[in-house]
Design a binder for these strands. Structure first.
Lengths: 347, 347
DNA sequence: CAGAAGTGATAATGCGCATTAGCATCGCCA
DNA sequence: TGGCGATGCTAATGCGCATTATCACTTCTG
């Protein structure tokens, strides 16, 4: 039935078979029966019949070159996406992205070819394939502000996942500040008055937001005592020593991995977790099984984050749509997972 | 420093800035300093300097149209890739694919736009973007043989993941027959003589291979008694009744989900698992947490499967490489995970 | 019956790039 | 001095498609 043939099917060949011109085929395929170019139903049907009998598919490269969008969304991850370290972080995002892209009939172009430079991928490199996509999604804990600015400059349509402090960057992020504040409130409600925060040594927006949420919330409780410090994860034993000196009743830890390790260290140190010290996890990236312990923690709606980012990008790409500023830069509420590591303070 | 500018950077503009022709720019960029076209080092450097001062990137669509490969590998999944049902199945594959693609400097084009028809995605549809990719990877439990033939016919380079019974289809698969046979041998070595097999009601190659491995291995043990039946998972209580009537000492189940459910049913029925009946799992697709029970089971090397498939595809795409038939259709050994559900037969 | 308005198409062009044929210039040897 | 090979580039073309300008022909209309 179909004519596979060795010669590639083009509009020109369809045109020959239907006894019309290439232009006519294009007009039929694109439904352009305007006042300019008129195609009567009979001709239209004849062309469509011929096409149905072949395996013709419009060459996307040619379409793109001719200046029409082709429903391809780029996906760029600043950290390699799948390898196990980040798997729990990226998989839900991609789930949402994929589902929403499917809704919109879009394909995803994953820029795996981006070279890695000082532990971070670089979006702009010779022969990057950015131009093939109609727009792009940017994922990653930290993004290069220079690259973001360049994207804005060149008016390339894109959406960042996670709040970004760069002018003109559309994003869908998570309201970590509010989530962290809520966790602080819960701790306070459970009687905690000595709070310790061990945050990451990073200037990523998400990290700063969590610190801010913590700071602002504790500031509204005058009788609370606070200790805070940062770590890169290389000396958790030392960190624990300093934390223990403060004698907190609850410890807020950014990294699930650090939380798991600190819990181990604390238990070895003779401290009962969570009876003597509750632990709350704020962060997201975990290597496998760090969450084997059922920590009370923030749970960003990652699937929805991915889906919303795609939805926003398609709105940006839609010429008939002009998203309001509030839509272009939006934070989603952050859920909290009630685990077993935040308990009422011991009498 | 870079000149973002409103006007898109093209070779023509580079050419103007460098005082040469567009052709020269192209020649320099592609290192084509053959006998035909000679570019002295001075000119070459001048062009490169100009390019370095701009944000020029070759338009991939134009390159593709002009007939050069563009290092894009298509990824097509017959079942939606990420949604939770298949997440454990696809994620490791994609991990391997991504890692290997990165090695080769390839981007991945995920065909999420394929429409779903009777529960299965269709690769060929109007405006499919297959043509943008240099080649493609096909994933999924069951693939449409007609589509596979069509790909072979049109000489589109691709690699299927999983053994495929269609002529001319290159694949990287898993030797389920050998893995299943090994599991049978282990059961026999543990004293089991009454074996039951509950397989899926499917003609997918992997399913058939597991049945074959089972059949062939039991055939070589004359004193073994076998029961086998199939299920679609809709009446596991009934299936269990029939299995119990046979009084097996070990039960081979294809689906982890069914295994988990049967175990529950059996225990309710007063049967001790695994003391009275061992359970072995052969299959792969599990909805979340079915493997909370530590079943003894087959563990296909899925990460490697993905990586090897990409490696094979790039070999196929390499004009200087002509993979041997044995490389084009290859099965990887299937690991076995020693769980707690296969024990020596009770006295 | 001349001209306007409408109908059904097509030729031509450009998108950005890779590639080939070929032109202009120069040095060199006879 | 004439011719010939080597050198350094460019003009021209095509990839497959979308789009615009235009053309040939038919039917009204005054």
């Amino acid at each position: 039935m179909t004519a596979p043939g060795k010669t590639k099917m083009t509009q020109r060949r369809i045109a020959e078979l239907a006894g019309v011109s290439q232009a006519t085929v294009s007009l039929v395929l694109n439904g352009k029966a305007d006042s300019d170019a008129r195609i009567p139903e009979a001709t239209r049907q004849r062309v469509l019949d011929v096409i149905a009998g072949t395996s013709y598919v419009a060459d996307p490269a040619a379409r793109r070159l001719a200046g029409v969008g082709n429903k391809i969304l780029g996906v760029f991850t600043y950290e390699p996406a799948f390898p196990s370290g980040s798997i729990d972080f990226y998989t839900p995002l991609l789930t949402g992205i994929e589902a929403e892209a499917e809704q919109h009939g879009c394909d995803l172009l994953v820029f795996t070819s981006a070279p890695v430079e000082n532990g971070r991928r670089r979006l702009f490199h010779e022969n990057n394939r950015l131009g093939l996509a109609d727009g792009a999604l940017l994922l990653g804990r930290e993004m290069d502000p220079v690259e973001l600015e360049r994207l804005v400059d060149m008016q390339f349509p894109f959406v960042a996942i996670g709040r970004r402090d760069v002018a003109g960057v559309p994003y869908v992020g998570v309201d970590y500040a509010a989530g962290t504040a809520e966790l602080v409130r819960r701790a306070v409600a459970l009687g905690h008055r000595r709070l310790a925060l061990l945050h990451l040594d990073s200037t990523a927006e998400s990290v700063l937001d969590r610190q801010r949420g913590f700071r602002e919330e504790v500031a509204s409780h005058p009788d609370i005592r606070v200790w805070s410090g940062s770590t890169r994860g290389d000396d958790l034993v030392g960190a624990w020593t300093r934390i223990r000196d403060f004698r907190p009743t609850v410890l807020f830890v950014e990294s699930p991995d650090h939380a798991a390790e600190l819990r181990r260290i604390a238990i070895e140190d003779g401290v009962e977790i969570p009876r003597e010290v509750s632990i709350v996890v704020l962060g997201e990236v975990a290597v496998h099984d760090a969450l084997a312990v059922d920590f009370t923690r923030l749970s960003p709606p990652r699937v929805q984050l991915g889906a919303d980012a795609v939805a926003l990008l398609t709105r940006i790409l839609d010429p008939d749509d002009e998203p309001a500023d509030a839509d272009l830069r939006r934070l989603l509420g952050c859920d909290i997972t009630d685990g077993s590591t935040l308990v009422a303070v011991a009498e």
